[in-house]
Simulated scan of single mutants.
Amino acid sequence: MNYQECIDACLKCMTDCEYCLEKMIGKNSHNDCPHCCRECLDICDLCAKALARGSKYSAQYCELCAEICEWCAEQCAAHDHEHCQKCAESCRKCAEECREVAMKIAA
């Protein structure tokens, strides 16, 4: 099974979260941004690696990645900053791809 679209979504999300995290350093936040970005970029990295190597735990990584990405999207979308909005968009796309892959693997 080819997981390249999901891997690409994870890598894009990871880099957008890293950028958002960097831009939020020293700024006040009324929610879990930028903390969610750290969690999100870490799980996206793990998920992409698991998919690339065909880990038997790929479905579980994808499920957790989708859950964390959805949380991060919600947190970042609450901010008006362009980098937060971009991060939220990447997180939503990654969550969608991860859920789709997890369902395919489980089937």
Rank of each mutant, 00 (worst) to 15 (best):
E70D: 10
L51A: 12
D16P: 00
L41E: 00
K23Q: 15
M1D: 09
M103D: 14
C62Q: 01
N31M: 04
E70G: 11
C20I: 04
A50K: 07
K56T: 13
S55P: 09
A50W: 05
C72L: 01
C20W: 06
D42E: 15
S29C: 03
L64A: 11
I43E: 01
A78E: 15
E18T: 11
A102T: 13
G54M: 06
H30R: 08
S29G: 08
A50S: 14
C40E: 06
A107V: 14
E89I: 07
K93D: 12
C91Q: 08
R99N: 11
T15I: 08
Q60D: 15
C40I: 11
E97G: 03
E70C: 02
E18S: 15
Q4V: 07
G54N: 14
C10W: 01
C91M: 06
E82W: 05
C91I: 07
C20N: 08
P34A: 10
C6K: 02
Q75Y: 08
V101A: 13
K27R: 13
I68N: 02
A78M: 14
C10D: 10
L21K: 09
A52P: 01
K49F: 13
H30Q: 08
C10I: 06
K27Y: 05
P34R: 02
K23A: 07
A66G: 02
D16V: 07
G26P: 04
K12W: 04
E82Q: 12
R92P: 03
K86N: 06
S55V: 03
A73G: 08
M1N: 14
A106F: 01
I105L: 15
H79S: 05
E82I: 01
C13R: 00
K12C: 06
C87K: 04
M103K: 15
S29Q: 02
C91H: 06
C65Q: 02
S55W: 07
A73R: 02
Y57N: 15
I7L: 09
D45N: 13
C44M: 12
R38E: 09
G26A: 00
E63M: 13
K49H: 10
E82G: 03
C87V: 03
C47F: 11
E70Y: 00
H35S: 08
S29I: 04
N28A: 04
K86H: 11
E67L: 12
C47R: 00
R38N: 09
A78S: 10
E74H: 11
A48Y: 07
L11V: 12
I68M: 11
E70A: 07
S58V: 04
M14F: 07
S90Y: 05
A106V: 15
Y3L: 06
W71N: 13
K27E: 12
Y19I: 04
